[in-house]
Design a protein around this nucleic acid. Structure first.
Lengths: 163, 163
DNA sequence: CCGAATCAGTTGAAGTCTCAACTTGTTGGC
DNA sequence: GCCAACAAGTTGAGACTTCAACTGATTCGG
């Protein structure tokens, strides 16, 4: 009954797995070395830096970083210890918490960003032709929608709206 | 000096990040639910099952799963506790260790594989057109080589030969 | 308005991964 | 042969993630 992968699909899948694995390992290692944070934490800083008042509700931040609430809570605690983020209680909903990027956190992000962008460029965009870049975007967007739906179904709350 | 990403590149990168993140999260969750192991452990079982005598040197196994030696060592210890893998000392090099897939481990892999393949199919291949599949393979292989070189340079020993 | 269901967020434990240090065995130059 | 470099693997500590259980606040049907 199982629809096994044929030779061609097998090759595709293994190349894809290897490439993504090596890519994220590499970017993570660079970020860890240069900025002392994992990529997931970098993403948190980026989202906050792009938000009104450098502030976001915990749940919005979790959704926009594709993170579980639990993971985010731990991560923000960690970033708080580093003095890069602060928690404030939400004025309109006493359950809510706001995460605010501090000046120190913003400075850390500014310091980390150029190196990280350079990494993305050199490991992803530089090796690809213009056609390949377009195809990569097209493929990624095609895969994205069903995955987001599935995730929502599983109860992970709102959708990854602003990606 | 920084070569920032333009709007188009930004979109591509974020879609790619989201899609891969959601994809691997999903596959991992399915595997954890159905087979009680993370995807990295599944990969180990697959490599062993494909090897002569269901046996591989630790270092070869580490290379072929793109895993650090340390990570592999921990993982094999865990799989050994489960009775799915056994360690034997290598006859030709007293430093070496062989990892051997047990019958029980093979059975576990046989039980897990159909569900996992179905997941890969439904989340990756089914949504893509034939052209997109070809492009995905092409892109993955393009990205792979430089990453493998970089990894080797960093001292991670031999190359990911048989992917 | 009151209680059940739901929502926002946190917590602690258990699992995995990384990093650096370490043990043991091999090899190559002298 | 011998000792310094190197290779194979392991180990333990610390960091991150997941999962399930939990607290407290909000909402909505009756």
């Amino acid at each position: 009954m199982t629809r096994w992968l044929d030779e061609e699909e097998q090759q595709t899948w293994r190349s894809f797995l290897s490439a993504t694995q090596l890519l994220f390992d590499q970017l993570d290692r660079e970020l860890q070395r240069d900025a002392k944070i994992p990529h997931a934490y970098y993403e948190i800083l980026v989202r906050l830096s792009e938000s009104e008042g450098r502030t976001l509700r915990m749940s919005q931040l979790a959704d926009s970083t594709l993170s579980s609430r639990s993971r985010l809570s731990h991560a923000v605690s960690r970033l708080e210890e580093a003095g890069w983020v602060e928690r404030k209680s939400c004025p309109t909903d006493r359950r809510g918490q706001l995460a605010v990027l501090t000046d120190k956190g913003f400075a850390a992000l500014e310091a980390a960003a150029p190196g990280h962008v350079e990494g993305v460029r050199s490991h992803v965009f530089d090796p690809l032709s213009q056609e390949q870049r377009a195809a990569l975007r097209d493929i990624s967007e095609t895969l994205l929608n069903p995955l987001v739906s599935e995730r929502k179904a599983k109860g992970q709350s709102a959708g990854a709206a602003e990606l």
